[in-house]
Amino acid sequence: MGSPCELGLYAEDSEMARRVAKRIIDDALGIEARYSRYREDSILSMINRKAGRNGGIEVDEETAGLLDYAQTCYVQSDGLFDITSGILRKAWNFQSGKPPDAALIESLLPMIGWDRVVWMRPRLAFKTSGMELDFGGIGKEYAADRAATLYLEYGIRHGVVNFGGDIKIIGPHPDGSPWRIGIRHPRQSQHVMASIDLGQGAIASSGDYERCIEIDGRRYGHILNPRTGWPVQGFASVSVVASHCLIAGSACTIAMLKESAGTDWLEELWLPYIVADDKGRVIKRHC
């Protein structure tokens, strides 16, 4: 998954804990194998190779579910959350620290847009050749939620899953007390900006600190606007509490994409959230 993952649980004995952990890790690795863009044999790579051809490609139930979810995010974000925007990776290299080639970005924009995809369950087709899908903002969260379900199916009711900052609570500590989740400061990585007590549900965070680039003194985060091809200039960080990691995660991403309209959009969800703007001001709502 490319990020540190943690499992915390209260189990009868260490053997039980090992069994559950193994099952969860296998499940998460399975999701990665199916939806990683780095693997030639993944379902995602096959879609990207074949969906541009005549007639497109027929996908399985799970992939169809993910595509439906991505489409819902696209609609609910007024077109900002777009799983076809991953191709911009070709122009933006956050490791190198080099500014992007504006002309390259321009040339990629015609290959971006969920409206250029024909999605008629179970068949998917790209209207424009060269398009690519990327489940980057969905896969890890989906894996975290499935891990929580596996816990419950093994009879474990007190535990927590942390997949690279996407946290799903299975249930409170055995004494009934909630888990305390610290939210890191977007500018001082060793500091906690706020903390929140959760006995159930999930919390996810998104920020401009994860991967970023500074060009001419301006900070560019890794969340890219699919229409401009440039990073959004919104919040320094957004954290959202929801019933599932998947929902919390996409809500964070959409709030970042919405820039100054992010908090208004979050208000419409009725979910608790914590945002920090680039001046370090923290807004906590419904928590």
Binding site: D27, E61, E62, G65, L66, D68, Y69, Q71, T72, Y142, D145, R146, T149, L150, H244, L246, I247
Partner: peptide, 8 residues
């Protein structure tokens, strides 16, 4: 949409 996914 999230709950329609398997294993949720």
């Amino acid at each position: 949409a999230a709950l329609a996914l398997p294993g949720m």
